[in-house]
Amino acid sequence: MRRKYLNFVALLAVVTGPISCGGSGGGGAPTSAPSAQRSGYVLSSFRYVFPEHESDPCPGGFTLGAVERRLLGQEPIPDDCLDPEANADPEFKELLGPGTVDGVDLDSFSSFGEQCGENGFSDPEGNSGVDYQLWRSIGCVQGFQEGEISDIVVGGAVANGSMTILLELIGFEGDDDQDLQVQMFASQQSPPLGADGSILPFGTLSVHEDERYHSTVGSAQMRDGVIVAGPMDVRIRLNIQIVEGDISFRDAVVRVEPMPDGTIRGAIFGYQEIAEVYDTFGIQVGQAGAQALSYTCTGLWDSLKKNADGGFDPATGACNSISVAYQFEAIPAFVAR
Protein backbone atom coordinates (compact mmCIF):
# COMPACT_ATOMS: atom_id res chain seq x y z
CA MET A 1 0.00 0.00 0.00
CA ARG A 2 2.70 2.40 0.98
CA ARG A 3 4.65 1.69 -2.17
CA LYS A 4 1.97 2.86 -4.51
CA TYR A 5 1.69 6.20 -2.78
CA LEU A 6 5.38 6.73 -3.18
CA ASN A 7 4.97 6.06 -6.88
CA PHE A 8 2.19 8.59 -6.99
CA VAL A 9 4.33 11.21 -5.35
CA ALA A 10 7.14 10.46 -7.74
CA LEU A 11 4.75 11.07 -10.61
CA LEU A 12 3.78 14.42 -9.20
CA ALA A 13 7.34 15.44 -8.58
CA VAL A 14 8.68 14.42 -11.96
CA VAL A 15 5.80 15.00 -14.27
CA THR A 16 3.78 17.73 -12.75
CA GLY A 17 6.33 19.42 -10.59
CA PRO A 18 4.68 21.74 -8.14
CA ILE A 19 0.97 21.73 -7.92
CA SER A 20 0.57 25.19 -6.55
CA CYS A 21 2.06 28.36 -7.78
CA GLY A 22 2.55 31.96 -7.01
CA GLY A 23 3.41 34.52 -9.61
CA SER A 24 2.75 38.04 -10.54
CA GLY A 25 0.59 37.62 -13.59
CA GLY A 26 1.06 38.38 -17.20
CA GLY A 27 3.65 41.06 -17.08
CA GLY A 28 5.84 39.60 -14.39
CA ALA A 29 8.88 37.45 -14.31
CA PRO A 30 8.76 34.13 -16.10
CA THR A 31 6.80 31.49 -14.26
CA SER A 32 8.97 28.48 -13.86
CA ALA A 33 8.31 25.28 -12.08
CA PRO A 34 8.61 25.67 -8.33
CA SER A 35 9.31 22.95 -5.77
CA ALA A 36 6.79 20.26 -5.03
CA GLN A 37 5.81 21.20 -1.50
CA ARG A 38 2.14 21.62 -2.25
CA SER A 39 0.01 19.15 -4.13
CA GLY A 40 -3.05 20.79 -5.60
CA TYR A 41 -6.34 19.34 -6.76
CA VAL A 42 -9.62 20.49 -8.18
CA LEU A 43 -12.72 18.62 -7.19
CA SER A 44 -14.26 16.73 -10.08
CA SER A 45 -17.27 15.50 -8.12
CA PHE A 46 -19.02 16.62 -4.95
CA ARG A 47 -22.08 14.88 -3.58
CA TYR A 48 -23.81 13.87 -0.42
CA VAL A 49 -22.64 10.79 1.38
CA PHE A 50 -25.37 8.22 0.86
CA PRO A 51 -25.79 5.96 3.91
CA GLU A 52 -26.57 2.27 3.64
CA HIS A 53 -29.38 0.68 5.59
CA GLU A 54 -30.31 -2.84 6.42
CA SER A 55 -33.98 -1.95 6.59
CA ASP A 56 -36.04 0.63 4.80
CA PRO A 57 -35.17 3.97 6.42
CA CYS A 58 -38.23 5.61 4.94
CA PRO A 59 -41.00 3.20 5.93
CA GLY A 60 -43.65 5.82 5.30
CA GLY A 61 -42.34 6.47 1.84
CA PHE A 62 -40.79 9.63 0.50
CA THR A 63 -42.02 13.10 1.28
CA LEU A 64 -44.57 14.30 -1.22
CA GLY A 65 -44.08 17.62 -2.86
CA ALA A 66 -46.85 19.83 -4.14
CA VAL A 67 -46.78 18.26 -7.59
CA GLU A 68 -47.04 14.70 -6.31
CA ARG A 69 -49.85 15.62 -3.96
CA ARG A 70 -51.77 17.18 -6.81
CA LEU A 71 -51.20 14.18 -9.05
CA LEU A 72 -52.37 11.88 -6.26
CA GLY A 73 -55.42 14.02 -5.66
CA GLN A 74 -54.29 14.97 -2.17
CA GLU A 75 -54.95 18.28 -0.57
CA PRO A 76 -52.09 20.74 -0.93
CA ILE A 77 -50.12 21.67 2.12
CA PRO A 78 -49.86 25.42 2.61
CA ASP A 79 -46.23 26.36 2.12
CA ASP A 80 -44.55 29.74 2.18
CA CYS A 81 -40.81 29.40 1.65
CA LEU A 82 -40.19 32.96 2.85
CA ASP A 83 -42.07 32.26 6.08
CA PRO A 84 -41.68 28.54 6.76
CA GLU A 85 -43.01 28.79 10.30
CA ALA A 86 -46.34 30.15 9.13
CA ASN A 87 -47.50 26.65 8.35
CA ALA A 88 -46.71 23.07 9.21
CA ASP A 89 -46.19 19.93 7.15
CA PRO A 90 -47.15 17.00 9.32
CA GLU A 91 -46.52 14.65 6.44
CA PHE A 92 -42.84 15.58 5.89
CA LYS A 93 -40.89 12.32 6.12
CA GLU A 94 -37.60 11.99 7.98
CA LEU A 95 -35.09 9.21 7.73
CA LEU A 96 -35.41 6.80 10.61
CA GLY A 97 -33.41 4.04 12.19
CA PRO A 98 -29.77 3.04 12.04
CA GLY A 99 -27.55 3.19 9.03
CA THR A 100 -23.97 2.87 7.95
CA VAL A 101 -22.10 6.00 6.94
CA ASP A 102 -18.45 6.12 5.97
CA GLY A 103 -18.10 9.14 8.23
CA VAL A 104 -16.72 10.27 11.55
CA ASP A 105 -17.83 11.11 15.05
CA LEU A 106 -17.42 14.86 14.96
CA ASP A 107 -17.63 15.09 18.72
CA SER A 108 -14.04 13.86 18.95
CA PHE A 109 -12.90 16.83 16.82
CA SER A 110 -15.35 19.53 17.56
CA SER A 111 -14.99 22.48 19.87
CA PHE A 112 -18.39 23.62 18.83
CA GLY A 113 -20.02 23.76 22.22
CA GLU A 114 -22.57 21.48 23.75
CA GLN A 115 -24.17 19.27 21.16
CA CYS A 116 -27.76 18.34 20.78
CA GLY A 117 -29.25 14.92 20.33
CA GLU A 118 -27.66 11.65 19.39
CA ASN A 119 -26.93 10.07 16.07
CA GLY A 120 -27.86 6.60 15.15
CA PHE A 121 -25.30 6.13 12.38
CA SER A 122 -22.28 3.86 12.52
CA ASP A 123 -19.18 3.68 10.39
CA PRO A 124 -18.34 0.59 8.29
CA GLU A 125 -16.27 -0.80 11.15
CA GLY A 126 -19.31 -0.65 13.40
CA ASN A 127 -18.28 2.32 15.47
CA SER A 128 -21.31 4.28 16.55
CA GLY A 129 -21.70 8.01 16.96
CA VAL A 130 -21.18 9.00 13.35
CA ASP A 131 -22.69 12.44 12.83
CA TYR A 132 -24.82 13.10 9.76
CA GLN A 133 -28.07 14.61 10.90
CA LEU A 134 -28.69 16.46 7.64
CA TRP A 135 -29.52 13.15 6.03
CA ARG A 136 -32.21 12.62 8.66
CA SER A 137 -33.89 15.71 7.21
CA ILE A 138 -33.42 15.09 3.51
CA GLY A 139 -32.89 11.34 3.29
CA CYS A 140 -36.52 10.70 2.50
CA VAL A 141 -36.82 13.40 -0.12
CA GLN A 142 -36.71 12.10 -3.68
CA GLY A 143 -34.77 15.04 -5.11
CA PHE A 144 -31.80 14.48 -2.78
CA GLN A 145 -31.32 10.82 -3.59
CA GLU A 146 -28.33 9.48 -5.49
CA GLY A 147 -28.65 10.27 -9.18
CA GLU A 148 -31.58 12.63 -8.67
CA ILE A 149 -31.84 16.36 -9.35
CA SER A 150 -29.68 17.67 -6.55
CA ASP A 151 -26.96 15.13 -7.26
CA ILE A 152 -26.95 15.98 -10.94
CA VAL A 153 -27.01 19.75 -10.47
CA VAL A 154 -24.23 19.81 -7.89
CA GLY A 155 -22.19 17.35 -9.96
CA GLY A 156 -22.44 19.70 -12.90
CA ALA A 157 -21.64 22.72 -10.77
CA VAL A 158 -18.13 21.56 -9.93
CA ALA A 159 -17.38 21.23 -13.63
CA ASN A 160 -19.02 24.34 -15.02
CA GLY A 161 -17.57 26.89 -12.65
CA SER A 162 -20.68 27.26 -10.51
CA MET A 163 -18.96 25.66 -7.55
CA THR A 164 -15.25 25.21 -8.17
CA ILE A 165 -13.49 23.75 -5.15
CA LEU A 166 -9.73 23.42 -4.72
CA LEU A 167 -7.79 21.39 -2.22
CA GLU A 168 -4.14 21.42 -1.27
CA LEU A 169 -2.05 18.86 0.54
CA ILE A 170 0.83 20.75 2.13
CA GLY A 171 4.00 18.84 2.82
CA PHE A 172 2.59 15.63 1.42
CA GLU A 173 5.30 13.09 0.69
CA GLY A 174 3.26 9.96 0.36
CA ASP A 175 4.43 8.36 3.56
CA ASP A 176 2.22 6.83 6.13
CA ASP A 177 2.54 8.27 9.62
CA GLN A 178 3.64 11.61 8.28
CA ASP A 179 2.28 14.92 9.49
CA LEU A 180 0.97 17.28 6.88
CA GLN A 181 -1.64 19.96 6.35
CA VAL A 182 -4.77 20.36 4.26
CA GLN A 183 -6.40 23.51 3.00
CA MET A 184 -9.42 24.06 0.78
CA PHE A 185 -10.46 27.01 -1.34
CA ALA A 186 -13.32 28.16 -3.46
CA SER A 187 -12.39 29.44 -6.89
CA GLN A 188 -14.19 31.87 -9.16
CA GLN A 189 -12.81 30.13 -12.24
CA SER A 190 -14.06 27.20 -14.23
CA PRO A 191 -11.85 24.15 -14.42
CA PRO A 192 -10.58 23.31 -17.90
CA LEU A 193 -12.83 20.89 -19.71
CA GLY A 194 -11.85 18.40 -22.37
CA ALA A 195 -13.59 17.75 -25.64
CA ASP A 196 -15.50 14.98 -23.87
CA GLY A 197 -16.75 17.33 -21.16
CA SER A 198 -14.51 15.93 -18.45
CA ILE A 199 -12.43 18.12 -16.17
CA LEU A 200 -8.84 18.07 -17.34
CA PRO A 201 -6.00 17.57 -14.89
CA PHE A 202 -3.18 20.07 -14.49
CA GLY A 203 -5.21 23.18 -15.05
CA THR A 204 -4.22 26.28 -13.12
CA LEU A 205 -6.99 27.71 -10.97
CA SER A 206 -6.78 30.75 -8.76
CA VAL A 207 -8.11 30.76 -5.25
CA HIS A 208 -11.11 32.96 -4.55
CA GLU A 209 -10.21 36.60 -4.17
CA ASP A 210 -12.26 36.75 -0.95
CA GLU A 211 -10.24 35.12 1.81
CA ARG A 212 -13.39 33.99 3.56
CA TYR A 213 -13.37 31.25 0.96
CA HIS A 214 -9.93 30.05 1.99
CA SER A 215 -10.33 27.43 4.68
CA THR A 216 -8.30 27.41 7.81
CA VAL A 217 -5.31 25.12 7.51
CA GLY A 218 -6.07 21.74 8.96
CA SER A 219 -3.38 19.66 10.58
CA ALA A 220 -3.41 16.14 9.24
CA GLN A 221 -1.86 12.77 9.56
CA MET A 222 -1.70 9.93 7.10
CA ARG A 223 -2.53 6.48 8.41
CA ASP A 224 -2.93 3.39 6.29
CA GLY A 225 -2.99 5.46 3.17
CA VAL A 226 -5.69 7.81 4.38
CA ILE A 227 -5.15 11.42 5.37
CA VAL A 228 -7.43 12.87 8.02
CA ALA A 229 -7.31 16.59 8.66
CA GLY A 230 -9.16 18.85 11.04
CA PRO A 231 -10.82 20.48 12.64
CA MET A 232 -10.93 23.26 10.06
CA ASP A 233 -13.46 25.81 8.95
CA VAL A 234 -14.31 25.58 5.27
CA ARG A 235 -16.50 27.88 3.22
CA ILE A 236 -17.49 26.96 -0.32
CA ARG A 237 -19.04 29.45 -2.70
CA LEU A 238 -21.77 28.32 -5.03
CA ASN A 239 -23.58 30.13 -7.79
CA ILE A 240 -25.81 27.55 -9.35
CA GLN A 241 -28.55 28.84 -11.58
CA ILE A 242 -30.85 30.79 -9.24
CA VAL A 243 -28.96 29.82 -6.11
CA GLU A 244 -26.14 31.98 -4.89
CA GLY A 245 -24.74 31.28 -1.48
CA ASP A 246 -22.28 29.42 0.69
CA ILE A 247 -21.78 26.03 2.19
CA SER A 248 -19.93 26.72 5.43
CA PHE A 249 -18.45 23.88 7.42
CA ARG A 250 -17.66 24.53 11.03
CA ASP A 251 -15.12 22.24 12.72
CA ALA A 252 -14.86 20.18 9.59
CA VAL A 253 -12.92 16.99 9.21
CA VAL A 254 -11.49 16.35 5.76
CA ARG A 255 -10.53 12.84 4.77
CA VAL A 256 -8.36 12.29 1.70
CA GLU A 257 -7.27 9.04 0.11
CA PRO A 258 -4.62 9.41 -2.61
CA MET A 259 -5.12 7.04 -5.53
CA PRO A 260 -2.33 5.41 -7.52
CA ASP A 261 -3.36 7.29 -10.67
CA GLY A 262 -2.65 10.65 -9.04
CA THR A 263 -6.25 11.52 -8.24
CA ILE A 264 -7.69 11.65 -4.76
CA ARG A 265 -11.02 10.77 -3.30
CA GLY A 266 -12.29 11.87 0.03
CA ALA A 267 -15.01 13.36 2.14
CA ILE A 268 -15.71 16.37 4.26
CA PHE A 269 -17.67 16.24 7.47
CA GLY A 270 -18.70 19.16 9.64
CA TYR A 271 -21.45 21.36 10.90
CA GLN A 272 -23.44 23.72 8.74
CA GLU A 273 -25.80 26.32 10.14
CA ILE A 274 -29.37 25.32 9.47
CA ALA A 275 -30.17 28.88 8.48
CA GLU A 276 -27.61 28.57 5.69
CA VAL A 277 -29.00 25.23 4.59
CA TYR A 278 -32.46 26.69 4.53
CA ASP A 279 -31.29 29.80 2.72
CA THR A 280 -30.28 27.54 -0.14
CA PHE A 281 -33.12 25.04 -0.14
CA GLY A 282 -35.88 27.27 1.12
CA ILE A 283 -35.33 30.93 0.43
CA GLN A 284 -33.39 30.74 -2.80
CA VAL A 285 -34.77 27.74 -4.60
CA GLY A 286 -38.22 28.80 -3.41
CA GLN A 287 -41.43 27.08 -4.20
CA ALA A 288 -40.28 26.01 -7.63
CA GLY A 289 -37.20 24.31 -6.26
CA ALA A 290 -39.10 22.66 -3.45
CA GLN A 291 -41.61 21.30 -5.94
CA ALA A 292 -38.85 20.05 -8.23
CA LEU A 293 -37.10 18.22 -5.40
CA SER A 294 -40.36 17.12 -3.79
CA TYR A 295 -40.61 18.66 -0.37
CA THR A 296 -42.22 21.58 1.36
CA CYS A 297 -40.18 24.44 2.73
CA THR A 298 -42.10 24.39 5.93
CA GLY A 299 -41.45 20.67 6.43
CA LEU A 300 -37.75 21.02 5.65
CA TRP A 301 -37.24 23.94 8.01
CA ASP A 302 -39.03 22.19 10.81
CA SER A 303 -36.95 19.08 10.28
CA LEU A 304 -33.68 20.99 10.19
CA LYS A 305 -34.47 22.60 13.51
CA LYS A 306 -35.39 19.28 14.98
CA ASN A 307 -32.24 17.50 13.79
CA ALA A 308 -29.75 20.29 14.45
CA ASP A 309 -26.98 18.77 16.52
CA GLY A 310 -24.20 21.37 16.71
CA GLY A 311 -23.64 24.94 17.78
CA PHE A 312 -25.64 24.93 20.93
CA ASP A 313 -26.96 28.40 21.67
CA PRO A 314 -27.53 28.94 25.39
CA ALA A 315 -29.78 31.85 24.60
CA THR A 316 -32.25 29.71 22.72
CA GLY A 317 -31.42 26.42 24.34
CA ALA A 318 -31.18 24.86 20.90
CA CYS A 319 -28.51 23.94 18.38
CA ASN A 320 -28.26 26.12 15.29
CA SER A 321 -26.13 23.82 13.12
CA ILE A 322 -26.50 20.39 11.64
CA SER A 323 -23.91 17.74 10.87
CA VAL A 324 -23.30 17.19 7.16
CA ALA A 325 -21.22 14.80 5.08
CA TYR A 326 -20.11 15.15 1.47
CA GLN A 327 -17.95 12.85 -0.59
CA PHE A 328 -15.73 14.06 -3.38
CA GLU A 329 -13.20 13.09 -6.02
CA ALA A 330 -10.44 15.39 -7.25
CA ILE A 331 -7.75 15.50 -9.90
CA PRO A 332 -4.36 17.21 -9.92
CA ALA A 333 -4.38 20.94 -10.52
CA PHE A 334 -2.16 23.94 -9.96
CA VAL A 335 -3.53 26.19 -7.26
CA ALA A 336 -2.58 29.80 -7.89
CA ARG A 337 -2.73 32.56 -5.32
Binding site: V15, G23, G26, A29, S32, F202, T204
Partner: peptide
Protein backbone atom coordinates in the same frame (compact mmCIF):
# COMPACT_ATOMS: atom_id res chain seq x y z
CA UNK B 1 12.22 30.77 -23.19
CA UNK B 2 8.56 30.64 -24.02
CA UNK B 3 5.13 32.01 -23.25
CA UNK B 4 2.20 30.30 -21.67
CA UNK B 5 -1.54 30.52 -21.26
CA UNK B 6 -3.64 28.56 -18.86
CA UNK B 7 -5.03 26.47 -21.71
CA UNK B 8 -1.53 25.50 -22.76
CA UNK B 9 -0.49 24.94 -19.16
CA UNK B 10 -2.93 22.05 -18.93
CA UNK B 11 -1.10 20.08 -21.60
CA UNK B 12 2.39 21.27 -20.71
CA UNK B 13 1.47 20.47 -17.10
CA UNK B 14 2.87 23.70 -15.75
CA UNK B 15 1.31 26.35 -13.56
CA UNK B 16 0.28 29.62 -15.16
CA UNK B 17 -0.27 32.55 -12.89
CA UNK B 18 -1.91 34.90 -15.37
CA UNK B 19 -5.64 34.31 -15.30
CA UNK B 20 -6.03 35.60 -18.84
CA UNK B 21 -3.68 36.05 -21.74
CA UNK B 22 -0.02 35.29 -21.90
CA UNK B 23 2.86 35.26 -19.47
CA UNK B 24 6.55 34.60 -19.99
CA UNK B 25 7.61 31.08 -19.18
CA UNK B 26 10.91 29.29 -19.03
CA UNK B 27 11.02 25.55 -19.45
CA UNK B 28 13.03 23.98 -16.64
Amino acid sequence: QSFMTRKLGVVYRVPVAATEGWEPFEFP
